[in-house]
Design a protein around this nucleic acid. Structure first.
Lengths: 288, 288
DNA sequence: ACATCACTGTAACGAATTTGACAGGCTTCA
DNA sequence: TGAAGCCTGTCAAATTCGTTACAGTGATGT
């Protein structure tokens, strides 16, 4: 454990720069030349880079208050990861007049980080492949969600049903699943939202569906549901929130993006359908 | 020398994700959970982080085409330093390797703008006042949503029910609303999600509830539902999306923030309840 | 039920790293 | 000029690390 995380290594170095010896200044220069990457290799590499001996590096690390070279490196790493986490986030407060610590602001920061973190690691080819499956009208589509994610699944189904026929929501009760499975043909699509605590019965459902030849698609969290090994495509998302429960903002984002992309992918057929729905639902409904 | 710098480690990993074994997927998840820092420590640390053996780490590195673990690390480092060179550059592209015009990117931009736009205009005192209403256990809480926002309403109810008793979802069918209204006492809370096209029957419901003395709370869009004039608090949100439909990401955000704030506001009473629910739901359910 | 195959962890080896001890060299001041 | 003190590198010991070999396990298919 590093002595004080109050400040960065660079900061500490600058503070001590007056008391540094010649070799230590060379090290400091080498580290700043490409900070902090130069310090992330072995102590030997770092020493060679600065053209000093390895013990000099060790002495510098100890002078900075670290127990040894690995401790020094660990500090550099955590510093770096902290820096990477807020590319933009800490700019300013989100909600104009609320304090930084107001839950609206902490939640907004978490949501932004979840979204950008999810997208950075997302495989957009998998996304496109899922859209292709959803846009293929020869396949029936079933969507399943757990106790919490059920609402997201329902949301997706509501929208997909406007975009194409043959879309159903898997009911929450496992007892009725067989009735849906029996109608599942080969190559139909079964899309799961499965986020921790993963439901064992969802895994069973996925296994049964897969046996019948269904294409399993999985939307999960960064810890990855066990359904992943049955799925043709899985998308892991970040869902952490400053709350007792996880955040489903990113899963909802993905649901909306999937719908929009599916509509785009088959606009010819979808356009007429949407228009028809508009016509039907305008009756007895006031619009803006 | 690494085999190909044409692509990032994350990218290569995603490309091979289909051919990964269970242990390798655990490693991938661990690496992505804290990318790329998790891979910059020792092979032992990385293995422990992912809860696999050290040889499994090595096997993954070789599978990705590296000569050994150090080569893998070197690639991560150079990738990282390349990324650090453009501090802001790739900020506009959210999904790292998808084109700017990919729907994931356009949607992400819209979502970010909606969120920050909503928060800039939000009255955090109204938010706090709503939380105070929701946290007051003497009041029953009813939540109503329209055809689309119903899923968000259901999501809010699912979570609020974990935080406190006396929370119900207004069913979609207007026919059964009287049964709920009859149980509405003075000062109970009726929270609406109402987004364009505003449903006339929702307005009727709000009017009836208000006559009975209920406190009406409204979450709506920037064009503001007519329910607003009946409500004690309204929060207008931005919901525009590059899609045929509006985005409900910000409404969901608000729902989550309301839940978290409500839990905080009455933590003393809520803590035990959450623990009890955990205890009940752990039975017959697998955890992570 | 059996055999095969792929996967995973344990254990042990060699290599590289980190660290401490020591001695040479430079500077400083009497 | 000489001596003291600090700084620095060389060297070797100890530790940790990366790697290989092997055996156990579970899944798959005959």
């Amino acid at each position: 454990m590093p002595p004080q995380r109050a400040t960065t290594v660079a900061e500490r170095l600058r503070l001590m720069s007056g008391e540094l010896t010649a070799a230590e200044r060379k090290l400091m220069a080498a580290l700043f030349a490409n900070y902090p990457m130069a310090g992330l290799g072995s102590i030997t590499d770092f020493a060679r880079e600065a053209d000093v001996s390895t013990p000099s590096v060790l002495r510098l690390a100890k002078k900075l208050g670290f127990s040894g070279y690995p401790a020094f490196q660990e500090d550099l790493r955590s510093e770096l990861s902290a820096q990477l986490q807020n590319p933009i986030a800490k700019h300013d407060r989100w909600a104009a007049e609320a304090p930084d610590t107001h839950i609206l602001n902490t939640f907004a920061t978490a949501a932004m980080e979840n979204l950008s973190g999810s997208l950075k690691l997302m495989d957009h080819r998998a996304f496109d492949a899922i859209v292709a499956l959803l846009a293929d009208r020869r396949r029936k589509v079933f969507v399943a969600g757990g106790r919490i994610t059920g609402a997201i699944a329902a949301y997706l189904v509501t929208h997909l049903q406007m975009a194409r026929p043959g879309v159903s929501l898997m009911p929450a009760a496992p007892a009725v699943w067989p009735q849906y499975l029996i109608d599942t043909a080969k190559n139909d699509v079964l899309l799961f939202f499965d986020i921790r605590r993963y439901d064992a019965r969802m895994l069973d459902l996925a296994a049964s569906a897969r046996e019948r030849g269904a294409q399993i698609v999985l939307i999960t969290d960064q810890w990855i549901s066990p359904i992943a090994r049955l799925a043709v495509h899985s998308l892991p998302l970040r869902i952490e929130a400053p709350s007792s429960w996880d955040s489903n903002i990113v899963p909802l984002f993905l649901a909306e993006a999937l719908v929009a992309a599916t509509v785009n992918a088959s606009w010819r057929e979808t356009e007429a359908r949407i228009a028809a729905i508009e016509g039907l639902s305008d009756t007895g409904r006031r619009s803006k």
